[in-house]
């Protein structure tokens, strides 16, 4: 029997498959696209190709598209799944997990190996992966390039508006004024870090135990800026991108 976790986010869908010993035997990321049900079918066929046919696994779905996965045995929210996955990945009981997702940012307080408290942004996309993507698009670069540019900034500018729509016009007027691209990029990444900082205030956290999960954990400059703003090193792990899916797979292994 295998255990599968699927984290269907607004931008990307992550999948983790475990064996009986709860070791990861397969993982992947695919774009979610506009049709969640189709994406679920795709994931199913990939599993099959890996020798994990439909009747040979139990699964838990999470993420915003969790209800659109017909074959999932159970749906559990991304808060619980990220928490569980992160506890396993970072192998420690007490820390604060920051997850910057496509359409929301979560701050999860972990105590004694389980979720104690959490904060999730309200409906707007300020401070999310989507925000970075839109801003990168406005600058005509991709997300990784945006962050690399930011690091080269000589004269920091700040983007004062948190709202994606207003921030975008701010960026456009900075471009119009001939501001250096790198400086604008810095302002954009900094605004994400500031937003996270203000969200951190809603849960109690220890600057010595900060962890990052989600799609942006492979962006070193963001980690650096976050650490600077939050007053403690924000650590991550190559697996952290899969925290939600991994947690879901672990939940699947506990299903009766």
């Amino acid at each position: 029997m295998n255990f599968v976790g699927i984290d269907m986010g607004s931008t990307c869908s992550k999948l983790v498959a475990l064996n009986e010993a709860k070791e990861i035997v397969y993982k992947e990321v695919v774009p979610t696209g506009w049709n969640c049900v189709e994406t679920a079918e795709t994931l199913l066929s990939h599993l099959e190709a890996q020798g994990i046919p439909k009747d040979a696994f139990r699964s838990v779905a999470t993420g915003y598209g969790r209800v659109s996965i017909p074959f999932a045995d159970k749906c559990i929210t991304e808060i619980s799944c990220h928490g569980k996955g992160a506890v396993a990945i970072f192998d420690e009981p007490d820390f604060t997990l920051i997850d910057i997702g496509g359409q929301d940012t979560k701050v999860i307080e972990i105590k004694g190996g389980s979720v104690k408290n959490f904060y999730m942004n309200d409906k707007c996309s300020a401070g999310t992966g989507r925000f970075l993507e839109i801003m990168a698009g406005t600058l005509g670069v991709d997300l990784n390039k945006l962050c690399e540019l930011g690091r080269q900034s000589q004269n920091h500018v700040s983007i004062s508006s948190m709202c994606t729509v207003f921030a975008e016009s701010e960026v456009i007027s900075l471009i119009g004024r001939g501001t250096d691209k790198a400086d604008i990029a810095y302002g954009i990444v900094e605004s994400i870090a500031n937003k996270v900082k203000s969200q951190m205030g809603r849960v109690s956290s220890d600057p010595a135990h900060l962890r990052l999960s989600g799609g942006l954990c492979e962006v070193p400059f963001l980690l650096e800026l976050l650490s600077e703003k939050l007053g403690g090193e924000v650590k991550t792990d190559p697996l952290a991108r899969y925290a939600g899916a991994y947690g879901a797979a672990l939940f699947a292994s506990e299903l009766k």
């Binding site: 929210t77 991304e78 619980s80 979720v115 104690k116 959490f118």
Partner: peptide, 10 residues
């Protein structure tokens, strides 16, 4: 909905 579901899960 997600926030409430997560709250109840915890």
């Amino acid at each position: 909905d997600t926030r409430i579901a997560a709250f109840i899960e915890t």
